[in-house]
């Protein structure tokens, strides 16, 4: 059921690396949040058409989703003892994370198609 007893160090390293990367990426996310607050459709599209912000959106979504599914897995392993429910929650999170990343890729693609 859990993976921590088999690959604890690998998990620890990947969570450390992703959290290290997420320090600047989260600051970008907050910046983006500030820039997009009250933005109309045209300004929102213009924002994501800038190469820097498009790249940061993809990078942030990717690393964030990776870090989130790893974190939720640990919480589930710690607090959900029922093996079936535990893996169901972990895989549901992974599925949602993958969908979220694909949604980001899709939006950046759509926004850039018109340019």
């Amino acid at each position: 059921m859990s993976t921590a007893d088999h690959s604890g160090l690998g998990h620890w390293k990947s969570q450390r690396l992703s959290s290290l990367l997420l320090v600047p990426l989260t600051l970008w996310l907050l910046w983006a949040g500030v820039a997009l607050t009250g933005a109309d459709y045209d300004s929102a599209v213009a924002f994501f058409r800038q190469p820097f912000h498009a790249a940061m959106a993809l990078l942030t979504a990717g690393i964030m989703v990776y870090h989130a599914q790893g974190g939720i897995a640990v919480v589930c392993e710690d607090y959900v003892a029922h093996p079936g429910l535990q893996s169901a929650l972990i895989w549901l999170t992974r599925l949602g994370c993958l969908a979220g990343f694909l949604a980001t890729v899709y939006t950046i693609y759509v926004v850039w198609q018109g340019s």
Partner: peptide
């Protein structure tokens, strides 16, 4: 906080992006 961001904040952010992809009406 991590659970809240994963379970609620991130889905809303991704839906916001999809709303942009959907055009001006869905964004509005």
């Amino acid at each position: 906080a991590g659970i809240f961001v994963t379970a609620l904040t991130m889905p809303v952010m991704f839906l916001y992006l999809l709303a942009i992809a959907g055009g001006p009406e869905s964004h509005a």
